[in-house]
């Protein structure tokens, strides 16, 4: 595996652990963690904070709570000792394949101009997750952000004013950032991008096109 240089922030890991992120962000975080052992270990620490906090909030259960739970367990029948499915051998990590309904070849791309293609994934409406396909050397139109945008590289690489992002790297962009990502010349770039507010394009044409493209 290539070396991942750009990781999740503490704020994102904590919100993922606490369960307060929109679904599209959860998907992007889960996909990055599937590729990144360092962030997986950091998530373990944030989950441990949740475990420690659990100690502080007891409310008595109903008198028959235990009996009712045992009844639930018995109604469930013999406990199966199922193990999680073995690690996938496809191109994309398992959480992302669940949303696509298959691997990379199952993605239903729609062209959005200049060779760039996108596929919007089915998540709750509070944020949007999309796959972006950027031909080698091509640019995504210059845009700023109203909310937060996460961009996770799945294949190839892109560069913007701040750095180069390769496979597994995640960029966390916010309101202060205007950027124009360009796919690296070596290979076509595929990214998973999540946004919690529509992007603002600087040029007039892309802004007019926004409602159609749902960027």
């Amino acid at each position: 595996m290539t070396q991942i240089k750009h990781h999740l922030t503490d704020a994102l890991l904590m919100a993922y652990s606490a369960g307060s992120l929109p679904e599209a962000f959860n998907l992007t975080v889960a996909t990055h963690i599937s590729l990144c052992d360092e962030c997986r270990a950091r998530l373990g620490a944030f989950d441990a904070v949740g475990g420690a906090l659990l100690e502080q909030a007891a409310v008595p259960m109903a008198q028959d709570g235990l009996a009712a739970t045992m009844a639930l367990i018995r109604a469930g029948g013999e406990t199966t000792r199922e193990r999680p499915a073995p690690r996938n051998t496809g191109v994309l990590p398992a959480p992302l394949r669940d949303y696509i309904g298959g691997d990379l070849e199952a993605v239903r791309w729609r062209p959005i101009g200049m060779g760039v293609k996108q596929a919007i994934l089915p998540t709750s409406k509070d944020a949007t997750a999309r796959l972006l396909y950027i031909p080698a050397g091509a640019a995504v139109p210059d845009h700023g952000h109203r909310g937060t945008e996460l961009t996770l590289v799945l294949q190839g690489a892109f560069l913007d004013e701040t750095a180069r992002f390769g496979p597994g790297d995640i960029e966390v962009a916010n309101e202060e950032m205007d950027h124009m990502p360009v796919a690296d010349i070596g290979a076509d770039c595929i990214c998973l991008a999540a946004t919690d507010a529509p992007l603002r394009f600087r040029a007039l044409m892309p802004r007019l096109a926004q409602p159609f493209l749902r960027i």
Partner: peptide
């Protein structure tokens, strides 16, 4: 405690938010 917290959190997202929670791929 940590393990139970993760189960409870996931059920909370299911029940209170009616949203899916994608989990990282298993090791």
């Amino acid at each position: 405690a940590t393990w139970i917290f993760t189960i409870a959190r996931n059920r909370r997202i299911d029940v209170l938010r009616r949203a899916r929670r994608p989990e990282p791929e298993d090791l």
